[in-house]
Amino acid sequence: MIRLPRLPDSIRVSLGRLLDRVRSRHAWFESPRGAHQVLVATLALVLLIVFVSAVGRSEQERRQISVAVDELSGLQSLIAEQQERNLRLEQEAVELGRQRDELVTRLLEESAFAGAEGQKALEDLALNRRLAQATAVTGPGIRLVMGDASGVEQGSGRSEDLIHERDIQDAINLLKSAGATAIAVNNERLISSSKLICNGPTILVNRNLQAAPFVITATGEPERLLAALEANERLLYLQLRGKEIHYHTADDLVIPAFRDETYIRTVTDLMVERSQP
């Protein structure tokens, strides 16, 4: 019980009313209805805070994703543009090379001033280009396909289900020992310094990434190449492990030329001819 000091009546009445009001509020708060309303209001407040924070976070994430998507799309466009340019430049290189070869041949064959030296130079050129793998070749041979175990999607799968550089390297070495005259992996012509490097699910052949299945084409005596593959235990082992291994002879293989003239210049700038002892 609050004891009020002696105050003027008007003030005592006012204070009395105020106290009554407070008591009535307290009663409202303690009533089931009042407590329910306070609880609902608090929940609404909490929900509002969560909602505002979620919207803010969501907006931030959306902006981040949008930036990433834009960047990836930009890079994709850039790659497509550069690939198109690459194709155009390669076609141009083939055409310019053809025009130059035609002109050189005409000048050396038809003009008297080049003489026998010119003829000899042209014959050497044909031979050297063949041995440097710089001439496309056609002829009989074998086509060997090596792929990952069935059901393996590109970019996934266990290591033991994939075809590795070593598997391809062994197959290539086998074909060379069986007398292959020219070899390509996924149409990438092998040269004296060709390397095979595993790069995730892909293999780098020369300077280009190749994905499974790897198609190895080799010109040579078809029956001899076939016999070498059939007798190879490693290929059989890979087949038994569920990997895609199949091969067949072919009469009309086309193996593209190695055309990276810049690379040839790089190599021949580093190495200098010396007289054989």
């Binding site: 050297n128 440097a132 200098v272």
Partner: peptide
Amino acid sequence: NVALNQVLEENRRLEIFAGLVAVEGP
């Protein structure tokens, strides 16, 4: 002898590249 010199130069590079001549380098 432009044509002849071009062919001789290409032959020189191809012989080195294909391993048809003895070479030296670092």
